[in-house]
Amino acid sequence: MKRECFAETGFLGAAVLSASLTALILIFMLFLGFPLFRGGCFFTLLTTPWNPDKGLFGIYPMLAGTLSIVFLSLCWAFPLSLGASALISVIAPTGFAKFCKKTVQMLTGIPTVIYGFVGVFLLVPFIREMFASGSGMSILSASLMLSMVISPTMILIFTDTFESIPASYSAAADALGASPVQKLLYVILPYSRQGIFAGLILSVGRAMGDTLIALMLAGNAVAVPGSILDSARTLTAHIALVIAADFDSIEFKTIFAAGLVLYVFTTSLILLVRIIGGMGMKNR
């Protein structure tokens, strides 16, 4: 019985250790960014511009950059993923649907840095030629490539939801003579609402947490972007770029503020997904 206890304690220890990392990351961000938060400066930090020469270290431009790139990439990726999932689950003939799904699964395995690399040498020149503006490193380029990064996962979540619809519903629709599209519209989509929403939110989290695409393709200019052809810097790219700076500077401390904002955002998204999931359980 001693060995039983010993093993259980060991397993519990591993579980507690892993869970404590979650808290530890938050504590580190808070502790190291602490000088910034004293006297309630944290919120001013989120709303002021970045101009180190004038002693302004606000991360508002990065916040705006992040939000615009995330929003735009979802504008491309969400309809695309929804359409592609409908194709895979309902519309395409079985053989082609299988091929599509396999391809999408493979796409989730492609390293982000490779998307970024191809973006730099293929997409950016293309955008530059197309719009004849600047370097081509812009919110548009980054958001297009980012939508390629997040779409495969989103499609897999959607198709899983579509395919989890009870067979009896599907059979009922078939028996009533519904066409595949009607089945999709009146049976599958209403049933999958929560799954679609959860997939969308998880993708927001992924898009927001991605560093490389924005770092490589968005140009990293520290200014609030005015159009989608402007260059922008995201919070993640800001962390990657400033890390080399002097450790004691205020400039350096701002990356902990950026990290904290990212942490809080992604955590709230996870909580949101959980709440939706919880409601889903009750409804069924």
Binding site: S18, T22, G209, T211, T236, I239, Y263, T266
Partner: peptide, 17 residues
């Protein structure tokens, strides 16, 4: 819940940690 949050933390934040 804790593991889900940890899975959602952006990798750059893990790097910063």
């Amino acid at each position: 819940l804790f593991y889900d949050i940890l899975a959602g933390v952006p990798s750059i934040v893990i790097g910063l940690f």
